[in-house]
Design a protein around this nucleic acid. Structure first.
Lengths: 200, 200
DNA sequence: AAAGTGTACGAACGATCGTGCTATTGTTGG
DNA sequence: CCAACAATAGCACGATCGTTCGTACACTTT
């Protein structure tokens, strides 16, 4: 099966552009992205970068998809190696705090920043970001439900999920804004408390 | 008492500009502000608006200060009418959720959006936003401490404050992103649970 | 070999940005 | 009355934005 060398090359540069775009957007926002600046930093031509995506909005959407892959690979994916139940739930929390603390994106959690940026605007980018956020919230809820079904904890599922979600986001926000890693420690302690308090 | 009519006039238009600026920034961010657009919407000249603030950064800083006044008047101020202790703490939570739900700023909490926008950038605007955030966090912590000192609850003060802060921010984020008011109900229930669980 | 397609470039476009400069107008204090 | 001053307007600037167009090259398909 012969691969098309043109498409391979295109996808390669697309990915380098998207990596940089996601990194920049985690700090300056998806609107702070400029095609010209991306091109200059990567030593490509502005029109070349533009042609790879067709429009700035498509570039933004592609950046959201790319960041979603990174997030899934860092936070969600590794939980499948842990037995379902309270253990997996704990692993999810750890992975998430680690993903933010280790600055996989230089501006902290990509979806926290971009979510706040597009939460009140209409359009495709909002919808894409909202879908991603909803998906992650649903995954947390699913893990909590799983642990409850296994009889490992008894709690209001959606409320516990909301609390865990809230703690993680707050830790990211405070740590990025003020520096230091203490918010992660506080959030983690709160999360563990919540889980042990709900343990059956 | 002589008042300078020129300064009065200037301050008046400054305030109308700042109100609009804060409203826009709560949706599009402080970087999404443009002096020309503000001037057009308010039927002023671009150079006139510019001259009132001297630079875009000064306009942004003034908008942060203005939003701080609004926030203080909506959330923090009214708590002084409630007796210190758990009652004041509860009022603080209610005020805060109400301030977000009633969309005092059309994009939800001004400081949530602007905080996420500037959390990872250096500069005066970051510092101003960080100071405001720190101040509010300190106020929450102070109220918790007060309630503890009065013997009305026993808890790890900074941790309880962090949890309440996290719940409020999460409620604002979800409600603005997805619409509806359910996140406020969930957050409020969680807050009350936390307070009654810690009640002495 | 020819035709077609995807990547990449350079140049140019209209629009908008922040920011100067130069009035003009209305208010103040001497 | 007059000189100083603040608010506001008009105009122009250089820069940057997203986008379009024409073109050159690499590669695939026929």
């Amino acid at each position: 099966m012969p691969v098309d060398g043109r498409l391979v090359r295109g996808d390669a540069t697309r990915r380098t552009v998207l990596k940089r775009a996601a990194d920049v957007a985690s700090v300056e926002g998806l609107d702070g992205l400029s095609i010209g600046r991306l091109a200059a930093e990567l030593e490509l031509s502005k029109s070349g970068v533009f042609a790879l995506f067709g429009s700035k909005e498509e570039l933004q959407l592609a950046a959201v998809r790319f960041a979603g892959e990174v997030f899934a690979a860092s936070v969600v994916g590794p939980t499948s190696e842990v037995e379902p139940g309270i253990g997996r739930l704990r692993a999810l929390c750890e992975n998430w705090l680690d993903y933010s603390r280790r600055r996989i994106f230089p501006g902290g959690c990509f979806f926290f920043n971009v979510g706040a940026e597009f939460d009140a605007r209409p359009g495709k980018v909002h919808d894409a970001v909202a879908d991603a956020s909803r998906g992650f919230a649903a995954f947390i809820t699913g893990c909590v439900q799983e642990a409850k079904d296994l009889g490992e904890l008894q709690a209001d599922v959606s409320r516990l999920a909301f609390e865990l979600h809230a703690l993680g986001r707050a830790a990211n926000a405070d740590a990025v804004m003020f520096g230091g890693t203490e918010p992660y420690d506080v959030a983690r302690a709160c999360m563990l408390d919540l889980l042990t308090a709900a343990a059956a």
